[in-house]
Amino acid sequence: MKRLYDSGAWAHRALGGLLPALLLLLWLTAAETGMVAPYLLPHPKDVLATAASYVFGHGGQAGFAGRFMDDFTASITRVMLGFGLAVLVGLPLGILSGRLALANRLLGTTINALRAVPGISWLPLALVWFGIGLKTTVFLVALAAFFPIYLNAEAGARQVNPTLLRAGAMMGVRRLRGTFAILLPAAMPNIITGLRLGLGISWAYLVLGELTGVHNGLGAVIMDARMLGRIDVIMVGIIFIAVIGRLCDVGLHHMLRFAFKSARRLP
């Protein structure tokens, strides 16, 4: 892929960093000129210092220093478990509903009704069922990620060009192999969309799950910081979640492209 090294391609890629750079500039201006009080919006260099202390553990105040690795490990584990569970259940059910009218009838009503329930309504119930901690968070993440994964897989499977399936059948492909050799690749664009949306929403619900008194995790840090009025730590938490969420998205995309021809060769 020679094109990646063209200057045009680099400029194109750098475009994605333009908006964050502008926001940072705006933030810097607001802090430098004193337009916004520091207790509402701390100076970027203070936030940077807090971030450094949060990650590397020197300087800063006790309580947050050096917590990052622990929080990160806890959060990513919860996200991956919840997201993995959602994929495991959502993808097969979605494909099934997209292909079999019977499955769609059976599942559609229930799933679309549950979909209307805001995730936060599940929180009290999850707390009663699973207590505070890993299980509740994983439950919330899995529940939230399930819907986009299911719905997109269903749409993808339903919209597969029937001629492709007929072509497979006439070339001697039976049902099971056809599912993997034709149906999944043909539905891949929708499946990818569903997985990316699902992973994105996983991070949102992770924080929701961690706001309820767990002792570690990126959401817990934000909650702790709120209690202590540490707005700089809150901002560090938000920025870390944004960056890690984006990296996860890119990672997922790369992984899919690595594993599947149909993802690699999307038009």
Binding site: R166, G168, M171, G172, A181, P185, K261, R265
Partner: peptide, 29 residues
């Protein structure tokens, strides 16, 4: 009573698998 490779169809519309190369499409069956 069912599709099988002893009766193959060339369709009017483009019915190649878009994620496979020309070679892979021909080798599919």
């Amino acid at each position: 009573d069912r599709p099988a490779p002893d009766r193959c169809v060339v369709f009017q519309e483009d019915a190649l698998f878009p994620w496979l190369t020309v070679r892979e499409n021909i080798a599919f069956g």
